[in-house]
């Protein structure tokens, strides 16, 4: 079945690339050192800024696209019974998969994501991403930040929040890539994101 339209695949590809570059440059800035350098500090700042802007613009386009195309429906779910569905999926990943049980929520035209994917993607795309983008904008224009927030240096608090979100999203990315190997073959999901067919 044809599940991933071209714009989704393009956005996903750009998003993934920017994400990887942002993680590497972000780590380079956070752990900058005189003795060893992953990427020279000034280059890391410039690359991080440019990729961050591309990611943010891509995110805004993604929001618009989700609002005006059918792709947005995949991120909607009824709250009622959600905990039970998430548990069922989690149990499958933690136990059923090793017993060769069938996936409780197999991919279908009307169901691109299983409940665990849905809830994690909603948190990532509608909660963590806005925070990391807004704090990133704050760090891009540090003179606009308030001196103090809750008695703490504004710049420090915003940067801590940015780094914390970066850490969560980095963990998500690793887990996301691993879960993508859980398909009919370990590479089938990756192929789907290239040709659009599941």
């Amino acid at each position: 079945m044809y599940l991933y339209p071209l714009w989704v695949r393009l956005w996903h590809l750009i998003n993934a690339l920017m994400f990887l570059i942002l993680i590497v440059t972000g780590l380079s800035l956070q752990y900058s050192s005189v003795e060893y350098t992953i990427i020279p500090f000034n280059y890391a700042v410039s690359i991080h800024n440019i990729t961050g802007i591309i990611l943010a613009v891509g995110y805004v386009l993604y929001l618009f696209a989700n609002r005006f195309t059918s792709n947005g429906q995949y991120y909607q779910f009824p709250i009622k019974g959600m905990a039970g569905r998430v548990w069922k999926q989690a149990r499958y990943y933690a136990y059923g998969i090793f017993k060769n049980e069938d996936a409780p929520f197999p991919v279908a035209i009307g169901r691109k994501f299983n409940p665990l994917q849905k809830i994690s993607y909603v948190f990532v795309m509608y909660f963590f991403m806005p925070i990391i983008i807004i704090t990133g904008i704050g760090l891009f224009f540090p003179d606009l930040l308030p001196d103090k927030i809750f008695g703490m240096l504004g710049l420090h608090l915003i940067d801590l929040l940015h780094i914390f979100m970066g850490f969560i999203l980095s963990v998500f990315m690793v887990v996301h890539i691993y879960f993508c190997t859980i398909g009919s073959t370990p590479l089938s999901n990756f192929k789907s994101m290239i040709n659009g067919w599941h």
Binding site: L29, Q30, Y31, L153, L155, H156, D159, F167
Partner: peptide, 27 residues
């Protein structure tokens, strides 16, 4: 002020390393 690269936190560094390592081990 706050200086990127100079004001990292030892405890948060260790904690993030432990969390990331644990997740990789589980995977």
């Amino acid at each position: 002020t706050y200086l990127i690269g100079a004001n990292r936190n030892l405890y948060l560094n260790i904690l993030s390393g432990v969390i990331f390592g644990t997740i990789l081990l589980i995977i």
